[in-house]
Design a protein around this nucleic acid. Structure first.
Lengths: 244, 244
DNA sequence: CGACTAGTTGAGCCGATTCAACCCCAGTGG
DNA sequence: CCACTGGGGTTGAATCGGCTCAACTAGTCG
């Protein structure tokens, strides 16, 4: 498949959420990019237990990372939004410790893993950025672990809704009608460490309490303050983040 | 405080668990090292909500990383053993999203954060290694999240015991009497997302079933196969890991 | 000798789970 | 055209794993 837009004109960079790169860096990224691929909603991107020779940047769409147990119990580790980087956790030649599935139709920028080394050598700033992205993702998993380990069902839901909303807002995904929200209740349950039924009931309770609305697949936070209080959510100062 | 041993002779490197570095790299690390510090068991190393200008490599002792909620509920994200790197998640000038406490008496190698940039520029391989360490730590948090989200109490405990034991074994911490095990039941509970009381009861059940023993602070896995089955644990192939 | 920390154990309760229906809607194929 | 199917969502009932409360032991430290 042909690359539609050159990295220089990457639509993500317009959102203002990402830190600028030098022309040389962008050129290098462009040269490293082997192709773009589209993946259908619901399809796997990386298989649990297989290795992959590629890394991806999520250009558009939603994706989630998960692990599972032999009997099918599944835990979603985190959700990835456009601009996020996929595949760092996989050591080359080693089985993937987790799976990655497309939540919506998705466009990916594909990078060969063996070029990574060139990146670190030729553009140390980009190497630094990749570490940043990795640390950032770990922070998100930490947050989720704190939720699953110590928050009640309602608190977990509040946290997840706020957090996803803020992230999406940052990259310009929130329109006047709210945020197009592709998660099913099963996804929520799997991310929160809850059962589907209990997720549903708690969701309804929060909705009835007027904390949020979800109409025609669009999420609105009707009472962000109450949600934040419930979740014990603190907004971290927003700053530009790297984009590879 | 004076640095006791030069990095070249770092005792950790003898365990065979770490990948070798070139002389130039080790020299660079040595030059970056500002000092070594000792921290008493139970003392904080990084404060939740404060920023730090330093990074650390854990030279000896055990440490844990945690987050907490306004009312004191605490979740331990992971435990760090000698050779692990501390402080990546903190953005410079940004409040730490988590705290790090010493579990035992601890020795740390201290690196100034502002030298990181030099490291990436002068020794891209070391930059690559740091990314590796970060990805590895994220993987451990993933594992823990899978436990807390989807495993039963007994399964969680089995998983944690095996995992800690294997990691400690790898770096030569396991002696003929077993593994010196510094965690209290409160630590276990906080790591597993369980209450102290329930952790205690489940622990006793597993012990009575002959799966492990913990005498005089030393852990032995009496029935590793049964533990692994219970936890749905798969050993990943062991390979040398970077050490900074 | 308190005072404090870590561990142990029982009783009762509750949040979350499982099981089981049922609804709505969008495909899809006869 | 309609019957059938499957995915997503909703709801009630019964159950249970894990929680809280509470009391008690053993060891250690000043």
């Amino acid at each position: 498949m042909i690359v539609q837009t050159p990295c220089r004109l990457c639509p993500l960079r317009d959102s203002g959420a990402f830190s600028p790169n030098t022309d040389a860096e962008i050129e290098f990224i462009q040269a490293m990019l082997t192709r773009q691929v589209k993946v259908k909603a619901g399809s796997p991107i990386l298989h649990e237990g297989h290795d992959s020779k590629e890394l991806y940047t999520l250009l558009s769409g939603w994706v989630f990372r998960y692990g599972s147990l032999y009997d099918g119990r599944r835990q979603i580790f985190n959700f990835l939004l456009p601009g996020d980087f996929i595949g760092l956790q996989h050591q080359l030649g080693q089985a993937a410790p987790h799976g990655v599935d497309a939540l919506t139709d998705v466009t990916l920028c594909v990078f060969p893993r063996e070029r990574m080394w060139d990146l670190y050598r030729n553009h140390p700033a980009l190497g630094y950025d990749i570490t940043w992205l990795c640390a950032h993702e770990e922070w998100m998993v930490d947050e989720n672990l704190l939720s699953v380990g110590r928050r009640s069902a309602a608190e977990r839901i509040a946290m997840l809704l706020i957090h996803l909303y803020k992230r999406a807002e940052r990259i310009g995904l929130v329109g006047p009608e709210g945020l197009p929200f592709p998660l099913t209740q099963q996804h929520l349950a799997d991310a929160l460490g809850l059962s589907l039924v209990h997720t549903n009931k708690t969701l309804k309770r929060l909705q009835a309490a007027g904390l949020y609305s979800l109409i025609e697949g669009r999420l609105k936070l009707l009472n962000p303050a109450a949600l934040a209080r419930l979740a014990d959510y603190y907004a971290r100062p927003l700053r530009a983040r790297p984009l590879i």
